[in-house]
Simulated assay, not measured.
Amino acid sequence: MIGYIKPMMALIGELKKLPGIGPRGAERIAFSILDMDKSTVEALRQALLDAKEKIEVCPICFSITDVVPCRICSDPLRDKKVLCIVENPKDVMALEKNGNYKGYYHVLEGSLSPAENIGPEDLRIKELLTRLNNEEDYEEIILALNPSVEGEATALYLSKLLKPFQIKVTRIAHGLPIGGELEFADEMTLLYAFEDRKEL
């Protein structure tokens, strides 16, 4: 039985490394790429290289950016009294698409997960505390963490850690499904989740 030729096998092998792409999905994408004209493939290649070379982490909020600091952190019109804590940059994008939140962000770059040996020292918690000690304007901290076991554990840990700062700490309401992720939530679900947030 004859299998795929080497260049095709290499392409499928690389595509399978992407999250959520299995062998069949990788094959479909590979054949789609083969059907593209050379200029489209070149544009895709350039977009991948540009993303890798030009996107970096904002030193203030730890979201992704192509300018330092990011456009959100450098926006003087945003609400300086509110800080929203999220797990990853994808969550920032999801909340920004919604358009209702106008404060600043802090990206933890993950959530607490004893099963995966991810503790507080593996997240951007030390940077969060430094930020709160240096910036005295915050009146509310919103924990917009995924409604998962890890997200709940992280929210509980942070709510206890933030008590000494005497800042109101809220958690977005569970308008989101347990086990779901912010990036996949629709705009109305995110809106209701923000409107129904509760103080911890």
Rank of each mutant, 00 (worst) to 15 (best):
P89H: 03
N117E: 15
L83C: 03
D66K: 14
E87C: 03
F62T: 05
K90T: 15
S111R: 00
A115Y: 08
A94N: 01
I85C: 10
K97Y: 08
G99N: 08
L48F: 15
C73V: 02
K54S: 08
E127L: 12
R71S: 15
E87D: 11
I72K: 12
G119Q: 12
I60P: 01
E121Y: 05
E116P: 02
I72P: 12
I60L: 06
P59E: 04
Y104R: 02
M93K: 08
C73W: 01
H106T: 00
S74M: 13
D122A: 08
L132K: 11
N100G: 13
A94R: 00
P89N: 10
P120D: 10
A51T: 06
L95C: 09
K54Q: 14
A115T: 14
L83N: 05
P89D: 13
V82W: 00
D50S: 04
L49C: 11
G119P: 01
L123W: 04
E87V: 03
N100P: 08
K81T: 14
Y101W: 13
P59T: 03
R71E: 14
T130V: 14
F62Y: 06
E96G: 12
C70S: 06
G110H: 00
Y104H: 05
V107G: 09
P89I: 02
L95M: 15
K52G: 05
C58T: 11
I85N: 07
K102V: 11
L123Y: 00
L49I: 08
V107K: 01
L108H: 02
I125N: 07
N88M: 08
L132R: 05
C73Y: 04
L48S: 10
P89M: 09
L132S: 12
E116Y: 01
G110W: 01
G99F: 10
K80I: 07
I55T: 13
V92L: 10
V82Y: 03
S63N: 15
D122N: 10
I55S: 07
S113W: 00
K126T: 15
L48Y: 07
C58A: 08
D79I: 02
C73Q: 13
N88C: 11
K102L: 10
I85L: 12
P76Y: 09
I118C: 08
